[in-house]
Structures are given as structure tokens and as C-alpha cells.
Design a protein around this nucleic acid. Structure first.
Length: 406
DNA sequence: CTTCCACCGGAAATATTGGTAC
DNA sequence: GTACCAATATTTCCGGTGGAAG
């Protein structure tokens, strides 16, 4: 997590180690955990969480905790911070393991368990190797238990964005492992979610075995956002930031329900914009442009990162939009166009059923908009699809892909 | 008030991908 | 190379929809 000091051994002038704008950009990275005295306005949450984990430090069981709060309110930050401190504070004869899993990446039971095992496993200490994939779920569990047993007295597991996981039973199995005598290591789970109803939707069996306390995180207010950013000012060189930059970024982020992640993103972007501009200092207009860029970039990335079939589908929709004055089209109409495109590009075309789902996925990502309409006896229920962004822009983005050339 | 159109969308079945272990 | 495994992609099948037309 800590970065290397800037090296001065590079003498090719093409790469300059003395960045004009940033002095330590890592401070603005998403996963960055600042030192204790730089965490703003979360004292209460920190001490609450610490109380729950207290047991681990002295060799008894930590409690499970469920943390709620919107994005960018410091949930992951505080969890990582407190668990790290618990690990450091543990008594001499006590070994605490900690692991952080983002369920947005590992969103199945097996992936979570295998990642946990891989992260906690110290091969030199356990003589176990955890394969990246290929084993059955139960084998991964066995590897995890073995790892925990041989290395730790207590473990704190952070499961971030747990609502994105498709299977609850991990929570149950983790809580039960100890009482079932499978392992001799206590486990405390910190589950993080931004949906308050998460627990309500849990399976009853899971709910009863995952006994937990709940902690709520409030959004940051504008003052706290500002303070957070001032705390990371060191990421920039001295005097590079003009006065308005931080307050303005804070204001933008405050509009997004006090999302500190957004605030820092904008700040970093503004620095990048200023750099590309060859400006000496970061000004207010860089922040504004950073804000706009962020939106466009996000969209381009969505389209660019889409699978080839999805691109073909979007291309069909774009061509229809460009060639008629309408901008909404029925799925069937788009499908015909899509089949033409596939034929010309010499690629396989998917079934209509699948095609519908692809459009729905794109709607979920915010690239298209779908409305359900009913034509009565003239044709029942249909979906009307519309591109949200300018078709010309979408078309250009898609055509950047070499597989889309005709 | 009923009919009826043709697409919608859930579910199950099947195929494909990408990996370990032996 | 063979047997497994999880995850994801796609196809097949089919009952459900709901408002305009009659």
C-alpha cells in the first residue's frame, strides 16, 4: 500500500519523475487508507466498530458487524483501518489475520472463499497452495479452514459490497465453522452494504446463524468533504492548487449525497486535466472540465468495454437512429438490422431471446433506455429502445473496434 | 366486455470457456 | 490426455401480458 519514493535514476527526459502537478498521486487512489489522524468525522464509527472487534485483540471471539451507508461515506476505509489496528494491537501471543474482499469482483461463494484462502495463506507457514480456480467449492472451504487453523487465533474478514454477492450462505458457513468445531480460530465478519434492507432479504437460516450488530454511516457534509480533501492536498505539489479548487470539488460531490470517493475522483481528474493543459496550477475551470470529462469517459468506457455482440446490437440501434427521424425502435426492428450487420461482418447472430437480454443489459448500464408499450390487438407488448447518448458519438466509439469494421 | 396479437420474460437445458489435478 | 469443476453464455420452450379493435 505504501509507495516507493520517487526514483531519480531515470534520465530519459521523455519520462519525468518530477511531475509538475502531483507529488504523490497515490494519496488519491481509491483504496488508499490514510493515517488515523487523517480520517475525518468518523470517530464515532471507528470506536463503535472497535468495540465489536475488541475480543479478537485478546484472543476471544470478535462480533460480526453489518455496516450500512451510501457510497463514499468511509465504510471500507473505516473497516480497513480498524481491522489493521486490531491486528497491530493484538497481544504478543495472539495472531490475527485480516482480509478484505470486494464482492463486486468476487461475487460467488466459491470466488469469495478461494480469494479469502489465497489472501490469508502464507505458503511458507502453511505449506498449502491455493489454486486460483478449478476446485470444487467444498475443497476451497477445506483449504480456508486449514489456512486459518494453522496460522491464526482470530480473523477479521471484510466483505465489501456484500449485496452484490449472489449467494448468502457464505455468511452462514463462516459463522458456523467455529461452533461446528471445524476450526480452532474465531472469525469476525464485517459485512458492508449500501442497501439498508440487505439483512431483511436474507434467508432465515442465514439470518439466524449470522448474529451481528449494525452500524450506520452518515454521508459527509460539505465541511467534512472539504477537510478530507485538504488532508490529501499533499498529493499535489506545494501551491499548485488554487483556492477554489477544493471547495468546488466538494460542492460537486456534495450534490452526490456527500460521496467522498467522487470528491477525490474529481480532484484527481482536475489535476490530470491541468497537466494535459500544461498549466502551472490547477484552476477552477479544470475542475469543471474534469467533471464533464468524467461523464464522457464513463460512457465511452461502457461502450468500449462491451462484448462484440453487444456492440453489434448497439450499432444496429445507432444506424436506425441515424437513418430516420425517430429515435425509438421496437426490438424486432433492431433485431433485423442487427442480423444484417452480423451477416456483413461475418459473425454469428444470437437468438432474439438473447438479443432482448443484451439490450436490457445495456439499459441497465445506462446506454439505452427501454420503455414498455402495448399495441393492443395490433401486436401486443413491445419494448421501445432508445439510445441515450448522441448516436453519432456512439457509432464512432463502436467503430474504433477493429472487429466492427466493414 | 371479450378477443387477440406477437412480443415479453422466466426457467430449464445445453454449450462454451478456462481452469486444476492426476 | 482425461476427468472434473465453476461460471457464464446461449438456446429452447412456453405461459403471460394488456390495451386497442371489434
Amino acid at each position: 500500500m505504501t509507495s516507493d519514493p520517487p526514483s531519480s535514476t531515470v534520465n530519459d527526459p521523455l519520462f519525468d519523475s518530477n511531475h509538475r502537478i502531483f507529488s504523490d498521486k497515490d494519496l488519491l487512489k481509491i483504496g488508499h487508507v490514510p493515517e488515523a489522524d487523517r480520517i475525518v468525522g468518523r470517530d464515532e464509527e471507528i470506536s463503535k466498530l472497535a468495540k465489536r472487534l475488541n475480543g479478537a485483540v485478546f484472543g476471544s471471539s470478535p462480533e460480526n458487524v453489518m455496516i450500512y451507508g451510501k457510497t463514499g461515506t468511509g465504510k471500507s476505509l473505516v473497516s480497513r483501518h480498524v481491522s489493521q489496528r486490531a491486528q497491530n494491537a493484538a497481544e504478543d501471543n495472539i495472531d490475527i489475520g485480516t482480509a478484505y474482499i470486494d464482492c463486486a469482483e468476487d461475487n460467488t461463494e466459491t470466488q469469495v472463499i478461494s480469494s479469502l484462502a489465497a489472501k490469508l495463506n502464507d505458503e511458507s507457514a502453511t505449506d498449502i497452495s491455493v489454486p486460483y480456480t478449478g476446485l470444487s467449492t467444498s475443497k476451497y472451504y477445506k483449504l480456508l479452514w486449514k489456512t486459518l487453523d494453522t496460522q491464526f487465533d482470530s480473523t477479521i474478514l471484510i466483505l465489501d459490497e456484500i449485496d452484490l454477492m449472489n449467494n448468502d450462505s457464505v455468511l452462514m458457513k463462516l459463522s458456523r465453522a467455529e461452533e461446528a468445531g471445524k476450526i480452532d480460530c474465531s472469525i469476525g465478519v464485517i459485512a458492508i452494504s449500501n442497501k439498508i434492507q440487505y439483512v431483511d432479504n436474507l434467508n432465515e437460516r442465514v439470518k439466524s446463524s449470522f448474529q451481528h450488530k449494525e452500524i450506520f454511516f452518515k454521508p459527509y457534509d460539505a465541511n467534512q468533504l472539504r477537510e478530507i480533501m485538504f488532508n490529501r492536498e499533499d498529493a499535489f505539489r506545494d501551491g499548485v492548487l488554487t483556492e477554489d479548487v477544493i471547495p468546488l470539488s466538494a460542492a460537486f460531490a456534495a450534490q452526490e449525497h456527500g460521496d467522498a470517493r467522487k470528491a477525490i475522483d474529481i480532484l484527481r481528474h482536475a489535476g490530470e486535466v491541468a497537466y494535459e493543459d500544461e498549466a502551472e496550477r490547477v484552476h477552477e475551470n479544470h475542475v469543471r472540465r474534469a467533471q464533464q470529462h468524467a461523464e464522457k469517459d464513463r460512457f465511452r468506457e461502457l461502450v468500449n468495454g462491451a462484448p462484440t455482440q453487444a456492440k453489434a446490437a448497439l450499432l444496429a440501434l445507432t444506424e436506425l437512429s441515424l437513418n430516420s427521424k425517430d429515435d425509438v425502435f421496437l426490438t424486432g426492428r433492431i433485431y433485423d438490422q442487427y442480423e444484417n450487420i452480423c451477416m456483413e461482418l461475418n459473425m454469428d447472430s444470437l437468438s432474439v431471446r438473447r438479443f432482448r437480454d443484451i439490450l436490457k443489459e445495456q439499459a441497465f448500464l445506462g446506454v439505452v433506455e427501454i420503455e414498455k408499450i402495448n399495441k393492443g390487438s395490433a401486436g401486443g407488448i413491445h419494448l421501445q429502445n432508445r439510445l441515450i447518448e448522441d448516436p453519432e458519438v456512439v457509432r464512432e466509439t463502436i467503430l474504433e473496434d477493429s472487429r466492427m469494421q466493414r
